[in-house]
Design a protein around this nucleic acid. Sequence first.
DNA 1: CTGTTAGCGCCTTCAT
DNA 2: ATGAAGGCGCTAACAG
Lengths: 334, 334
Amino acid sequence: MKNITIADVASQAKVSKSTVSQYLNKRYEYMSESTRQKIEQTIKELNYHPNIVARSLKQKSTYTVGVIVANILHTFSTQIIRAIENYFHQHGFHIIVCNADDEPEKERNYIEMLMAKQVDGIIIFPTGGNIDLYKSMIKKEFPIVFMDRTIDELEIPTVMLDNIQASTLAVDRLVESGYSRIAIVTTSIIRNISPRVERIQGYKLALEQHQLPVQSIYIKTPEVDQIEEALDELFKQGKPPQAIIAGNDRVLIDVLKYIKQHNLKIPSEIAVIGIDEVSFASFFTPPITTISQPAIDMANLAVDLLLKQIKGADSADEKKVYRLQASLNERESC
Amino acid sequence: MKNITIADVASQAKVSKSTVSQYLNKRYEYMSESTRQKIEQTIKELNYHPNIVARSLKQKSTYTVGVIVANILHTFSTQIIRAIENYFHQHGFHIIVCNADDEPEKERNYIEMLMAKQVDGIIIFPTGGNIDLYKSMIKKEFPIVFMDRTIDELEIPTVMLDNIQASTLAVDRLVESGYSRIAIVTTSIIRNISPRVERIQGYKLALEQHQLPVQSIYIKTPEVDQIEEALDELFKQGKPPQAIIAGNDRVLIDVLKYIKQHNLKIPSEIAVIGIDEVSFASFFTPPITTISQPAIDMANLAVDLLLKQIKGADSADEKKVYRLQASLNERESC
DNA sequence: CTGTTAGCGCCTTCAT
DNA sequence: ATGAAGGCGCTAACAG
């Protein structure tokens, strides 16, 4: 019942292990037609499959990459995982999926395990809590690509949304519809998570461009479990907002729940626009205007950047941050 | 710049490789306190991390398992992936995620690659198109667990929903509300995908129990891209249904789109109930009654079953099919 | 307690 | 065109 190895094939086919190895690596020039066929046949007979672990040990390449998402609960993360898996599969790579759960500890643990497992590279949604580790990886020239979030001080290729443009899109749309008291709600920014910070920044810039006042009472950045309270504060003040920008899909869901509970009319009583597309946007009542990220393009770009590093291309553009454009899905909620 | 190995640590610490290996495997009884400390220190100095590929080659265990989902687009799949990743992580395992895309070819390819990579086991949402392969895996005693779908003829532990109970729950609820013309829509059953077949079967049984006629015009099993047409047929006949059961989340979305487009009122003109919970159910207008699967329990059970096989426990219950209970989320759409 | 030795399964010069 | 031999990094007897 033991595993069959290259040696079994060799003895069965009456050739040496190295010849079989040549065959496995498709270097057919190094053997006669007859031995080639004999090997092919015995491989089939024995139902032999090369042991990739052994090959990896020798070749220092596992054809496996790690993907560490900051929080797998975001729709965006799962979209990206899908797309990355799909594109890597086309290149013959497997992916190991890890969820850091927004905890730097977990992230560090995963990174170390993945490297110990000799993965060929990692795509990370960085928590931002392991700068030293990232640095040591750079120094080792270990292939990495950051996704969704950037760490300014590091020269790591990064794929992210043009968040400024995304919130500008939202504000422009809202202003166009005549709203001036516009609020934005994102989840906590205490750890400087770049998309959130940048979306707020873009919101401010856009308001200024429209000569509208930026008021801190209209900017809320609660923890995920306190979004309801934040919305309460927003609405229970003298001048409640006319429109609200949900900084991501989880916030949007809480916003819509709140609106439902309080029986508010969209958009007449409160206009809504969400960053991140959601499954129900088109058939909600009313259909929700959203701003979507080009998840597939982002995933493919990240994969390309990682593969380039894995294949050892020169690191000419190592420090580049790629910001892809968001797009507006005009519907009827604002 | 070369990788540091156990040999480097050994020479640096002036001990032999095997002692270092003992240390790595925490068999501290086999060395003096002083050498233990010396090793510990040099490992830190050198920033040494054991090469897991080499260890795996020796030990025949990679602490990695594969998860092949039939179709990663279903919410259920991503829920399961999350839960499995989480639970395996607690056991020190990594998961390689694969998406078979409902194509047996792809599934076969993945299974073979995963086995070549020496994963310790696989959790599969079987497409059903590779019976011979499944059989050969059983014969090799390779650890497998099936998820969501069963293949009758095979003795593989399987975790799935009690689909009969799930649709009974739906029908009961609908009948209770006074509907008698009840339709069910699932995606294609040409390949005998068990959840779909069973949900329809449960629907029929439940109708019979309520002494209601089972009419084939109320049972639709279109391909995913033809759900709209199927709904058209359903509604454009003499006796359109009063209520509709959506067989899964993707169908539910199409049903709701259709209802929106045709301006039907829920539940007065058409009642709706969906199998699979969806993110928007609670704040939709009206809130959608759904039947949800205990995804986390299912995932944990599957992991436990796989780990038991990996750890080589006796295969007493190898052939068991575990069917977990669905639960009703009563809301206002029926 | 510690070191020596022999693999795990494959790839890769280097001879033949 | 084919084979022999060494080594990838680690583990596990078995000696000492």
